[in-house]
Design a protein around this nucleic acid. Structure first.
Lengths: 297, 297
DNA sequence: CAAATAGTGTCTTTGAGACATTATGCG
DNA sequence: CGCATAATGTCTCAAAGACACTATTTG
């Protein structure tokens, strides 16, 4: 607190005591959580290992707008909390989950993104391991579901311009659960030149995904794809004891491609600490179980 | 727009027509811009190359709160614009700069970060090349200045815990301009375990930097340090024609360390397209001039 | 010619990619 | 015994780090 006086002769203390907020229009600020998990699909052949899938938790909207559509869990930020605290609180209230990995993703602020009124969304990326998944959304299970996530590039166009370029990429996001299939096509236009960088994202098709949540989910997948390669973030998707093959599967479903075993283990084996436990009765050679070894730098 | 009716029998159209925003307390949302540039220090020895410094544009506050302190340029978001559009508008209004690189940084939302009222800050990282710097803040030059940025780790403490660790790092941020020296010490506590990841940032000392802007600037430096290594973002800090040594200097001041010439050119030479121009009368062998070659992927 | 930087060559080390080989519990 | 996966060895290739050497303009 400083003692300087402003042009009205007030100290900071006096100024604050006299301060009345102006009558400006303010936005509502919500948090939306993209909660991912790596869940095993049931395998018919008893000898084969189950395959994992990347899933996201969605909640079916029971009221307008976007009635019947599927939306990310979320809620409004309250005046005595940070957006992160709001995310933690909503996570607990809405999905009954605590103590999971959470990081701020991006703040979406298109004034038309909510048809009701001006609502910004500060989005969070959350990761939860497959053992905690069953707990999630226990209360309201009929309106919550773990959708399998698929994000694919469907077309790309590159145009060179003077001093830069323009690249247009179209992504198809597919979310499936039982016989429900939600899709969205997103167009990303990137213009790069001496005059700055412009990123335009547009949802150009949307089937059943509420608000701009298709865009938020796509953004989250991209963030996850990037960070998984140079951080230990993937450990949050794996249970307390895990095999290296399991960890590799997590990488494969995030990156959307098969990886080769030996180099994978060389690179990401540092994330795992061997234990004396093993898997058993798997119909083939047992596998050593590991524990998480978080990177400290 | 869907035709489903909600529990009150309304279609979405009817619902929206009847919609009245609730009377909840809402935050103000501001944008704050961390505008960096790489500016050459005057060199006394005519033969020596000038050295670059990483600088950030700050504006001296003329009113409470934080009267007399130096703050990031910024302003409030208006109801018909995105935060990005607000950043572009404020940049033009407040510093008279257009067409520069801009990317969203982070949304800071501590409800106490502004002593007046509840104000969130959606911060942006902006980069401007040294040739455009003179224009910046032309109107209000006496209250705007390019401060030299220094961010150093002053201590680090690592404690292993069950299933994870806790790391505490203290950073010293020093901003200097003429004989003005602003400093802040920031403590970052990172707790990582099966129960999630917690990041606590606290400003534990602050001399002359407004609000939580010391934290925002530190965050921006870290983002820049990270991104410079795997993107072409550094090109935004270099003029239309530049030498590879100049580009290397930009990397060096961002990363805070000397780099070796040959490997630097192998790695980042792809960002530069040779021209037939050269520097001249530099007191030593002239250097080839390059133009920016933006990465298209 | 000397100062100072420009620009290149190359050795070493590291690590990723690709593939092959050996090992082993289970039914 | 054979299925399916576990675990490791090794060759190749690409890139980073480190250092040395040559080239060139200017005062």
């Amino acid at each position: 607190m400083n003692e300087l006086r402003d042009k009205n002769g007030l100290t900071e203390e006096e100024f604050l005591a006299a301060y009345r907020p102006g009558d400006y229009v303010k936005p509502s600020v919500a948090v939306d959580m993209v909660i991912f998990s790596a869940i095993e699909r049931k395998e018919k052949n008893y000898r084969k290992l189950p395959e994992k899938e990347l899933r996201v938790l969605l909640i079916r909207r029971g009221g307008h707008p976007c009635l019947g559509c599927w939306a990310l869990p979320g809620g409004f930020v309250e005046p005595d909390e940070t957006t992160e605290q709001a995310a933690v609180r909503e996570l607990k209230e809405e999905t009954n989950v605590e103590n999971i990995y959470l990081e701020q993703l991006y703040t979406f602020s298109d004034p038309k993104r909510d048809p009701r009124t001006w609502v910004m969304s500060c989005s969070y990326l959350a990761l939860i391991d497959s053992e905690k998944v069953n707990v999630a959304a226990g209360d309201d299970a009929s309106n919550a579901a773990w959708f399998t996530v698929n994000l694919e590039t469907v077309s790309q166009n590159l145009t060179k311009q003077q001093d830069g370029f323009c690249k247009t990429t179209e992504y198809m996001l597919t979310l499936s659960y039982d016989n429900i299939k939600l899709t969205a096509k997103i167009r990303h236009e990137l213009i790069r030149s001496d005059k700055g960088a412009v990123n335009n994202y547009d949802i150009i098709e949307n089937n059943g995904i509420a608000f701009d949540h298709a865009r938020i989910i796509s953004y989250a997948v991209e963030r996850l794809r990037g960070k998984v390669q140079y951080t230990d973030i993937a450990l949050n998707l794996v249970p307390e004891y895990f095999t290296l093959t399991e960890l590799q599967q997590v990488y494969e479903i995030i990156l959307g491609k098969k990886l080769i075993k030996a180099p994978f283990r060389r690179k990401y084996g540092i994330l795992a600490e061997p234990t004396d436990k093993q898997t058993s009765y798997a119909g083939h050679r047992p596998s050593q179980l590991f524990r998480k070894k978080w990177l400290t730098e």
